[in-house]
Computed example of a mutant assay.
Amino acid sequence: MNDTMGAPALGTVVVGVDGSPSAQAAVMWAAAEAARRGRGLYLVHATDVERHAPILSQGEIARLERTGLEILDRAAEAVAARHPGLAVITELDRGEPSAALRQVAAPSSTIVVGHRGRGGFSSLLLGSVGLETVANADTPVVVVRGATEAAETGAVLAAVRDEADLGCARVAAGEALLRKVPLRLMHVGNGTRSAGTGPAPGDGTQTAAGDRTLPPWTVAGQIRDAFPDLRVYADGEKARSVPGKLVDASWHADLLVVGGRRSPGYLGPTLGRTTLGVVQHAHCPVELIPRRGPGHGNTS
């Protein structure tokens, strides 16, 4: 395998813990991911007392820290029961949750968050901590969505807009290899009619409908060359809503991998309208690959 084209190194897994059902699901997903990688798992609970210290008594601060330690202990016990050989490190931080997660994460780490925290209304939408983490992280972030113990579908799905998303596809290929499942590369263009699906034509460059190049077929060829033992499929679709089509496809994926937005702005340097729609509504965990950093691909 060409070292410049292989899967990026998959390091430790860092997960936010707050005692909520969503965070508990994220912890168990993160533990399974760390076990697959053969890496350690960091459980992080942030009390956010530094920001609120002027209005909190010492007794209240002590109570928040005790509660945080209890939450971490319960999470660590649950992980040990499911993955007894996994190295687990607990971290109690006095800062803001999203910043605490980013601080613990190394460049090769993956941050994992639940789709909702303890605050706010119970909703399908991404919570404020998850939103801020996804928008500003320099490392991959997984938002755990879908059923807590969802049945595996046997595929990793990656959204591919063009060859600039090769880095995103490489990360997805690494995740597929870990799971021993195929990788499906999916390009969704704006429109109302399908651009065709299935394996690439002989030259790997043209669609059946005309002269327009279909990006996933080009990327698929490069991924197949770099990962000869991985089954890779490429689909091209047209839809009125790009995120809506990806959300529909997420029903049939164990993990959906998408890249960060191409240009700064909107909700942050990583989070754009398409990626926001996906992480808000997907039916499986979503891994967002930051726009910034070596080897990371981009999609709007």
Results as ranks from 00 to 15, higher is better:
His283Ala: 13
Gly120Ala: 13
Arg262Asp: 04
Glu175Ser: 08
Ala34Gly: 08
Arg118Asp: 04
Gly154Cys: 11
Ala25Gly: 15
Arg193Asp: 12
Glu70Pro: 01
Ile289Ser: 05
Gln280Gly: 12
Trp217Lys: 04
His296Ile: 11
Glu77Met: 10
Pro228Ala: 03
Ala147Lys: 14
Ala239Asp: 15
Ala220Gln: 09
Ala75Thr: 05
Ala46Asn: 11
Asp229Val: 08
Val15Met: 09
Ala100Met: 00
Arg51Ile: 05
Leu69Phe: 05
Ser98Leu: 00
Thr133Val: 11
Thr275Lys: 01
Gln103Phe: 07
Val14Tyr: 11
Val160Gln: 12
Val134Asn: 04
Ala137Asn: 04
Ala34Met: 08
Gln222Glu: 15
Ala30Glu: 10
Val160Lys: 08
Val88Ala: 04
Ser123Met: 07
Thr153Asp: 08
Arg145Lys: 15
Glu163Ile: 12
Val142Ala: 13
Leu92Gly: 00
Cys284Phe: 13
Asp93Ala: 08
Ala176Trp: 00
Thr192Lys: 10
Arg36Trp: 12
Gly130Arg: 04
Ala106Tyr: 03
Asp18Glu: 13
Ala7Trp: 06
Gly198Cys: 06
Ala253Met: 06
Ala209His: 12
Thr275Glu: 14
Val188Phe: 15
Arg184Tyr: 03
Gly204Lys: 11
Asn190Trp: 10
Gly189Lys: 05
Ala173Lys: 03
Ala31Met: 07
Glu50Pro: 02
Phe121Pro: 05
His83Asp: 03
Ala81Thr: 13
Pro215His: 04
Gly127Ile: 02
Gly167Tyr: 03
Gly244Thr: 07
Gly265Pro: 12
Ser20Trp: 09
Pro243Cys: 09
Ala53Tyr: 07
Ser300Asp: 13
Asp248Ile: 02
Leu10Val: 05
Val143Ser: 10
Val160Ala: 13
Ser98Arg: 00
Ala9Ser: 08
Ser57Leu: 09
Ala46Val: 07
Thr275Ser: 15
Thr90Asp: 01
Glu175Leu: 07
Arg82Pro: 00
Leu230Ile: 06
Lys238Asn: 05
Arg273Pro: 02
Leu43Cys: 11
Ile71Lys: 00
Thr47His: 11
Met186Gln: 14
Pro97Lys: 00
Leu255Gly: 00
Ala46Thr: 07
Ile71Gly: 00
Asp235Ala: 10
Gln280Cys: 13
Thr218Glu: 13
Thr274Lys: 01
Ala62Lys: 07
His83Ala: 05
Ala209Trp: 09
Leu124Lys: 05
Ser98Ile: 01
Asp235Thr: 11
Ser128Lys: 09
Leu177Gln: 15
Arg36Met: 12
Gly244Lys: 00
Leu131Ala: 12
His281Thr: 10
Leu126Arg: 04
Gly68Leu: 02
Val129Pro: 00
Val49Trp: 05
Arg262Tyr: 03
Gly127Thr: 05
Glu65Lys: 07
Gly6Asn: 09
Gly260His: 01
Ser123Tyr: 02
Pro269Asp: 12
Ala249Pro: 02
Val144Met: 09
Val279Thr: 09
Gln222Phe: 02
Pro8Asn: 09
Ala208Gln: 08
Leu43Ser: 04
Pro215Ser: 06
Val258Cys: 14
Leu255Phe: 11
Thr274Arg: 01
Gly260Ser: 14
Val112His: 01
Gly19Ile: 10
Gly189Met: 12
Ser263Ala: 08
Gln222His: 10
Asp165Cys: 14
Arg179Asp: 02
Pro199Ala: 10
Ser122Glu: 11
Gly221Lys: 05
Val232Leu: 12
Val247Gln: 00
